[in-house]
Design a binder for these strands. Structure first.
Lengths: 337, 337
DNA sequence: TCGTGTTGATAGAACGATCTACTAACTAGC
DNA sequence: GCTAGTTAGTAGATCGTTCTATCAACACGA
């Protein structure tokens, strides 16, 4: 039925010109006369020709594909990031190969190599916690453009696009302190995750600035999920001197902390102040509406895509970093006496 | 710095064998002796060779890429769908090209053609509302495997994977009626969207079954969003004889309806019964927890991917349809007198 | 009339792999 | 010693494009 796909050769034969001529026309060269151009166009639509971009790419050593490696698409922050990357890539003539590493460094390593085999023009990577240095080393020696996104990676020879986690956490804790809180918990996130380390540092910084002593029982570590906050908040509520407010590692944690608070008879945003992190869409429609640090995943994504494509176009440009200063979005959940 | 990428030819020269031999070894043929195999392997790691899969694909007329066209990644239903498709594709040795049509039929058309040019092995499409028949016609004449997902398309020569919207809505309305409701609204969604049409049909079916007359003022049309439900519910609440319950087009609508109810001094799940549609993760953590029809986007996605890959492997297999029967997940929001 | 451009089109080698067909060197059977 | 079969490896065409070099035809100026 489908036989073979019709190629440039059939078009050439059918239109009575050479293969080269057809190729030139396809690429919109002006060096071909109008009559022949029309003859070829006629042949194209008559035979139902479709361009084989991979063949062209093989010849020209180019590619319109960029690879995107994220941990988990299901996290709304990464969803927004991905959506933005796809959109700006598409607008600039690129397609994106999407893969999820599942926070597994080995898998991430294999995926990155596999993408290179598939001939991507460049790669955007959100490094998995515990990423192997060899992964990036290999990409560097291969000379393929890479943009690190969201989570910093200790190698300043790569472009980077991400939020300023330190400052974001600092702002949030500042706001809590201004509302009169002195005992402020930091809930959720796992040690070794660079984003969390930065957020924690911002949290400490703000406490220090206001001469509030550091109490390590107020920092709860846990793998963040849609339910993890329930246990996290229970732990600090059980303390002899419980906190009156908390900064959460992300909005998932914050929303589940709200449920946890209610289980203890406390109304979030009334009996306990809460600020989340990320600014994912559902923070706005939670009850009560969640105050949070808006990291603007879409902007991060757009920047990452632009930076990568910029480097693809111009491989030797100087390394650049785009660090976005987040916005503190105060809604209801941070209000409490 | 990066010169040229090292090819199979360099490896052959360096190991003192022919190009064909290297190729055989790369593909794990047993027809090559162990000593030469090792010599070649040594050359490979010494020169830092990376396989060029596109070149191989050109020769073998094959591809490990599948294209996925969805409307909007940002909708959690599609997020879950995409995540599942990516995962099962990856497990079966495929990568996915992700693009968003933005519910624009023209764009969808261009994208599908572009993916073909890029040489995808097959395509999973969630048809945009108002899709052009030519889009699918073209794909069919090109003979490229296509699986329609989520939203049905009136051409039974394509494989299909999606939820049973009719039955889902029917179940939900049944439950509402069992809880004693007689005036039940249907909120949100736009005319012309086949998913909505099926849901609406299920809604009517259930009413009819219980001899409840149809009141068109209880059906509110609107483009669904994270806030659209606020206005939708206001409209039916303003009626002389307002409803006591509602089935919502999706969970977005349902969650915003909750906010709308509160604005009118009503407690969702207490003064008004509410059932959503989709079963997106945040339905579980909403307040009160949202009762909803769980469409299992992950299963739909996994099925779609399996079906497509099955057809890629075996293009002439009979057309198949996988229709998933949703689960009614009753939490809190449907409870009301 | 001759050299010099310009225009429109082409032939044939690439790109990096695979595939088909073939061969040289052994082994085995009788 | 001869034929047949197996094993290990290779040469060269090929996939569908683009690129480099070249060419024929014609116009132009001196």
């Amino acid at each position: 039925m489908k036989d073979k796909r019709v190629t440039i050769n059939e078009i050439a034969a059918h239109a009575g010109v050479s293969r080269s001529t057809v190729s030139l026309i396809l690429r919109g060269s002006g060096r071909i006369s109008e009559p022949t151009r029309q003859r070829v166009q006629a042949a194209i639509s008559e035979l139902g020709y479709t361009y084989n971009r991979s063949a062209a790419n093989l010849r020209t050593q180019s590619s319109q594909a960029i690879g995107l490696i994220i941990n988990d698409l299901t996290n709304p922050f990464f969803t927004e990031l991905t959506a933005a990357i796809e959109q700006t890539a598409e607008r600039r003539g690129y397609f994106v190969y999407l893969v999820q590493s599942g926070e597994d460094p080995d898998h991430q390593h294999k995926l990155s190599l596999s993408m290179v085999e598939h001939g991507v023009a460049g790669l955007i990577i959100c490094p998995a916690t515990g990423s192997h240095p060899e992964t990036f080393e290999r990409l560097r020696t291969l000379g393929i453009p890479v943009c690190i996104a969201v989570r910093p990676w200790p190698d300043d020879r790569f472009d980077f696009a991400g939020p300023d986690n330190f400052r974001a956490a600092h702002m949030a804790v500042d706001a809590l302190i201004e509302h009169g809180h002195r005992r402020i918990a930091f809930l959720g996130g796992e040690r070794g995750n660079p984003s969390r380390d930065d957020r924690l540092a911002g949290y400490f910084g703000a406490l220090q600035k206001h001469d509030i002593g550091f109490d390590e029982t107020l920092v709860i570590e846990s793998r963040p999920s849609r339910t993890s906050g329930i246990k996290d908040v229970a732990k600090v509520l059980a303390l002899a001197d419980p906190p009156s407010a908390a900064l959460c590692y992300n909005d998932f944690v914050a929303i589940s902390v709200m449920h946890g608070l209610r289980q203890h008879g406390l109304q979030p945003g009334q009996d306990f102040a809460l600020i989340g992190f990320d600014g994912m869409p559902e923070a706005e429609t939670s009850f009560p509406p969640l105050s949070t640090v808006f990291l603007d995943a879409r902007r991060v994504g757009a920047n990452a895509a632009h930076m990568l494509i910029g480097r693809i176009d111009e491989p030797d440009r100087p390394v650049s970093r785009s660090v976005i200063v987040p916005d503190l979005v105060l809604r209801q959940s941070h209000k409490a006496s």
